[in-house]
Computed example of a mutant assay.
Amino acid sequence: MTIIENEYLKVTIRSQGGELTSIYNKAAGIEHLWQGDPTIWGWHAPNLFPVVGGLINNELLVDGKTYPMQRHGFIRPTEMKLASETTKQHALFTLPYSDSTLAIYPFKFNYQIIYDLIGNALRVTYKVVNMDKKAIWFSVGGHPAFNVPFSSTEGSAYEDYYLEFETGEKLDTHMLSADGFFTGETRHVPLDGPKLHLTRHLFDDDALVFKKLNSRQVTIKSDKHEHTLSVEFPHFNYLGIWAKPGADFVCIEPWLGCADSVDGPTDITKKDGIQKLEQGHVFEAAFYVSI
Results as ranks from 00 to 15, higher is better:
2 T>N: 07
4 I>D: 01
4 I>S: 01
5 E>W: 02
5 E>I: 02
6 N>P: 02
6 N>S: 06
8 Y>P: 00
9 L>N: 03
11 V>F: 05
13 I>P: 00
14 R>L: 10
15 S>V: 00
17 G>I: 01
18 G>W: 04
20 L>K: 01
22 S>M: 15
22 S>Q: 15
23 I>D: 00
29 G>P: 05
30 I>C: 00
31 E>R: 05
31 E>W: 02
34 W>C: 04
34 W>K: 04
35 Q>N: 14
37 D>M: 07
37 D>T: 07
37 D>R: 09
38 P>H: 01
39 T>S: 15
42 G>C: 09
51 V>Y: 00
51 V>F: 02
51 V>M: 02
52 V>H: 01
53 G>D: 06
54 G>H: 12
55 L>D: 03
56 I>M: 09
57 N>R: 15
62 V>Y: 08
65 K>L: 12
66 T>P: 06
70 Q>H: 09
75 I>H: 03
82 L>Y: 06
83 A>S: 12
86 T>S: 11
87 T>K: 12
90 H>F: 13
93 F>S: 03
94 T>I: 11
95 L>R: 00
95 L>Y: 00
95 L>A: 02
98 S>W: 06
98 S>M: 09
100 S>I: 12
102 L>H: 13
103 A>H: 06
103 A>S: 11
108 K>F: 08
109 F>H: 07
111 Y>N: 01
113 I>H: 00
115 Y>Q: 06
118 I>T: 10
121 A>V: 13
122 L>Q: 04
123 R>E: 15
124 V>S: 01
125 T>L: 07
126 Y>E: 10
128 V>H: 00
129 V>D: 02
129 V>R: 00
129 V>C: 02
131 M>W: 11
132 D>V: 04
134 K>C: 11
137 W>P: 01
139 S>W: 01
141 G>F: 03
143 H>A: 06
144 P>F: 04
145 A>Y: 00
146 F>L: 01
147 N>I: 05
148 V>P: 03
148 V>Y: 01
151 S>I: 02
154 E>F: 07
156 S>R: 09
156 S>P: 07
161 Y>K: 12
162 Y>S: 07
162 Y>N: 03
165 F>Y: 10
168 G>P: 10
175 M>V: 15
180 G>I: 04
180 G>K: 03
183 T>V: 08
188 H>Y: 12
190 P>R: 11
191 L>S: 04
196 L>S: 03
196 L>P: 00
197 H>E: 14
197 H>F: 13
199 T>F: 12
199 T>A: 13
200 R>E: 15
200 R>Y: 15
201 H>R: 14
209 V>G: 02
213 L>M: 08
217 Q>W: 05
221 K>T: 08
222 S>L: 09
225 H>T: 05
232 E>D: 12
233 F>K: 04
233 F>T: 07
235 H>E: 14
236 F>M: 15
237 N>P: 07
238 Y>A: 09
239 L>F: 08
242 W>G: 04
242 W>E: 07
243 A>T: 13
245 P>E: 11
253 E>Q: 09
257 G>M: 05
258 C>Q: 14
264 G>A: 13
265 P>E: 05
267 D>N: 13
272 D>G: 06
272 D>C: 13
274 I>M: 13
275 Q>R: 14
275 Q>G: 10
276 K>D: 10
277 L>D: 04
280 G>E: 03
280 G>I: 04
283 F>Y: 12
284 E>W: 10
287 F>Y: 13
290 S>C: 13
290 S>E: 14
291 I>D: 05
291 I>N: 05
291 I>A: 06
